Computed example of a mutant assay.
Amino acid sequence: MIIQNPTYNFLPNVKQILFLTFITLLIFLFGNRDGMSQNIAGNNPVNARIAFYNVENLFDVYDDSLARDEEFTPEGPRHWNNNKFYKKINNTYKVIMALGESGPPVIVGLCEIENRFVLEKLVYDTPLKNFNYRIIQFESPDRRGIDVALLYRANLFEPLFSEAVPVLFPFDTASRTRDILHVKGVLLNTDTVHIFVNHWPSRYGGYLPTVPKRNYAAQVLKAKTDSIL
């Protein structure tokens, strides 16, 4: 099994951990040694491209009374309207297409998406609809209402389990951040993978004051991955 992305290539039969852009996408690969040997011996290696993309504020135009999303409404400072929203949807789908080779990636981790509605517009109302993408997403307690998500091509990846892993700060119980998305599944009908999509607390408010929150998010992630290993 060879997993490819724009930066990393993986050798077969080796358990791998992949870190992309400050632990935004973490993958454990457990190889099927016999199946992979047959593929390699037959000069037909299996390839899967896995990507991560921070879409940077993919909001709909509606005001959510439970989130601080007023900035992305027609009345807000960005004057966010349907024209701007669908332009961003169109640009986002083009980036995802460009991440692939003969087709878009098998798996795409996303962050800074507002809800399932924007994901459905991205997957079902653009040419991505031709590639059998499905969505895994949970609503998180982030105060701005932004979440992480996973898109996968259903004919190439079979999810077996998914969960939202909460990041709750014991030293700041009033603070809210994005959950970590954990998905376990079978890739290319060959290997079981564990994928963790992360979007840790930002440096908004200053680098040093926010370090403890990012460190704590790392501890939550480590505890979860250690439980698998």
Rank of each mutant, 00 (worst) to 15 (best):
N5A: 01
N9W: 07
P12T: 09
I17W: 00
F19P: 12
F22P: 13
F22I: 10
I23H: 05
I27L: 04
F28A: 02
G31L: 04
R33K: 05
S37R: 05
N39A: 07
N39R: 05
N44P: 08
P45K: 01
N47M: 10
R49N: 11
A51C: 12
Y53M: 09
Y53T: 09
V61C: 14
D64H: 08
S65W: 03
A67R: 10
D69M: 09
E70T: 09
T73F: 02
P74A: 04
G76Y: 03
G76M: 09
R78P: 15
H79E: 14
W80K: 11
N83I: 15
K84R: 12
K87V: 15
N90Q: 14
T92R: 11
I96Q: 07
M97W: 08
G103Q: 10
P104D: 07
P105I: 03
I113H: 04
F117I: 13
L119F: 06
E120G: 10
E120P: 13
V123T: 13
V123I: 10
N130C: 12
F131S: 15
N132T: 13
I135P: 12
I136P: 10
Q137Y: 09
F138K: 03
S140T: 14
I146E: 12
A149V: 06
A149H: 01
R153N: 10
A154P: 09
S162M: 08
S162A: 12
V165I: 15
V167R: 01
P170Q: 02
F171Y: 10
T173R: 14
K184P: 06
G185S: 00
V186E: 01
L187D: 00
N198V: 04
W200A: 04
S202Q: 08
Y207P: 09
T210I: 10
V211Q: 04
P212Q: 02
K213D: 12
R214H: 07
Y216M: 06
Y216K: 07
A217E: 03
K224A: 05
D226W: 00
I228P: 03
